[in-house]
Amino acid sequence: MKKEFVKILTFMVLFAFGMGTTAYAITSGYSSFAELYASEDAADYTIKTTDTGRDTTILALHGGGIERGTSELVEALKGYGKYNTYLFEGLKATDNGSLFLKAINFDEPAAVRLVKNSDYTVSVIGAAGNDETTYIGGQNKILAELIKLHLTAKGYNVKTLSIPDRIAGTMNSNIVNKNKLFNDSYQIGGVQIAISKGLRDKLVTDSSILNDYSGSINEALSASWPKIVPHLKKITKSEGILNKFNPSKRNFDKKIEHILKKGAKTPKELIENTKE
């Protein structure tokens, strides 16, 4: 009864003030996987984990019927055979939104373990809106920008998110940012890709768009990113001893911001900018 009241109240607030294009689904969500596990029938969801020992993990935290289209994209990326993947999928005939667990609260053990052992992480979630827009964020600003440039080169509309947007993916508590320390010294975090409902519907119904979209992300991760990593590692080495007890990493962050301010228009330009 209490949960239904929260849903109704949430709907009234969103109706009164308008729902932003990057809003989550209308649900308060669970605060932990333990809470979800205790409240939901295990037959109503499934967890699919593929650990190939790769350095990159791609997650669909709200897959299946929760946020349609996110599982399909992660499965397409899995097909390239270059990534670990994780999917939490809703299997209900209706009301899969009740299985929602926010990224900042996502502590399902298999997902936590996979992310913790990964150098780089990408999370695919859903956003509202019938337009065809990709919202990209996360703490790894260089990789986020790289993926954005690859997608825009193919004609996709991509917007970069930052604080205070609620799906900017920049919080330390977001599971996508809990990967390994970069070069054993710096918490570089991950990338969160939020895809509007309009575009997700296209990914589900049009295989050519799914292949094109996933192919662009794969190109960013497997071809362009490995060219940038060595240059970023040089930056961390030049900063001296950087470790998890010094979270600000101001000099490193300033150099990343300097690279981004150059405004690369193509993936190749961004790669070149990291060399300087």
Rank of each mutant, 00 (worst) to 15 (best):
F5E: 14
F5G: 00
F5M: 14
A16G: 12
A16D: 05
M19R: 13
T21D: 12
T22P: 02
A23E: 15
G29I: 07
Y30W: 14
Y37H: 11
D41Q: 09
T50W: 01
D51P: 03
G53C: 05
D55L: 11
D55N: 14
T56R: 06
I58K: 12
L59C: 10
L59D: 11
A60I: 10
L61H: 11
G65T: 07
A76D: 10
L77P: 09
Y80R: 12
G81R: 13
G81Q: 10
K82G: 03
F88I: 03
A93Y: 05
T94I: 12
G97A: 03
F100M: 03
A103Q: 03
N105H: 14
F106D: 12
L114I: 04
K116E: 15
D119W: 01
T121Q: 07
T121C: 15
V122G: 04
S123Y: 06
V124T: 05
G126W: 08
T133D: 01
G138W: 01
Q139I: 08
L143R: 12
K154W: 01
N157S: 13
S162V: 05
D165I: 02
R166F: 03
R166N: 06
K178L: 13
K178Y: 11
K178I: 06
Q187G: 04
Q192C: 05
I193F: 12
A194C: 10
S196I: 02
G198A: 09
L199Y: 11
D201W: 00
K202M: 07
V204I: 15
I209Q: 15
G215M: 08
S222L: 00
A223I: 05
P226K: 03
P226Q: 04
I228K: 04
T236P: 02
E239S: 06
S248F: 11
K249I: 06
R250H: 07
N251I: 13
F252G: 04
E257K: 13
H258M: 08
H258F: 07
L260S: 09
K261H: 13
K262G: 13
K262H: 12
G263H: 06
A264D: 03
T266S: 15
T266A: 07
P267Q: 05
K268H: 10
E269N: 02
L270R: 02
L270K: 01
I271M: 03
N273I: 02
